[in-house]
Amino acid sequence: MTGTNIAAASVQIAGLVLAPVLPGIVQQAKAKLQGRPGPSPVQPYRELRRLWRKGVVNVDGSTFIYRLAPATITACAVIGVMLVPVAGHSLGWPLGADAIVLVGVLALARFAAAAASWDSGSGFALMGASRDLTFSSFIEPLLLLVFAIAALRAGSTDLRAISDAASGTAVWGSAAHWCAAAAFLLVVLAETGRLPIDNPDTHLELTMVHEGPLLEYAGRDLAFLHWSAAARHWIMLVLATELFVPHPHSFAFRLAVLAAALPLLCIGLAFVETWQAKLAVLRVPRLLAGGALLALIGFASASIGWPP
């Protein structure tokens, strides 16, 4: 219960509130790149407020699974936010900071969304869910390989130890770290649902992946789901900063790096989205498998110790 831990914990809780800013920044950056003024970064908050005031919709013939799914997904997102350490520190109690626990929690959210789409019986939702799950069978090994490379360096899968091992400049000399960074970029794109893997602005059934299960919901349910998507942005981008943005060892400097890096990473995401077109659904696994191969090569090079 040291001072840094409590400070980090308060930043994590602040993250629960600040998360919707991140997609807002991405939207505005995208708009500016396309030559439009674009919405302000606080637009997502206005969306949430509008949705909060509306009533929810229950689908005919659905069970408690449909009703509880948004709550479950949001709970998983909250746990995810509390798991990811900030500037290398977190409260550690009661949930710890294990990387594999994070992977499991994200998987539960995915399962809840897919189960809800079966419950509502909506074809759009089921199509989106089936694609989402197909991608997940490639994303999870990829994420695991990234964490394995990080754990190899840190000697532990604790995210705080991993973040500490990634500080300084020495780590950038190893090939494994670059391979892991490239692979993690793919994971960020996949988990946040951005082009080229998924288009967050579409509602056409042939192109939806993440958006599908959201289609039946309205009101507070939809507010919860939008917030969870924003929380996933926070989780992924904070992880990216902790692991792959060069930072010094001290806590205060790391906080500053985090505060500066998050908006820059959002703008980077906007760049990637504008530069890339959407990849055909059946080609996405190939891209993810290529990333996994790259990560595996990186791991092999790190454990063999070549190149030195």
């Binding site: 009533g55 507070r220 919860f224």
Partner: peptide
């Protein structure tokens, strides 16, 4: 979260 959801009005609708 379920309690928060419950306090808002609900409408039945087909898929």
């Amino acid at each position: 979260l379920a309690v928060l959801r419950r306090t808002s009005p609900a409408v039945m609708a087909p898929t």
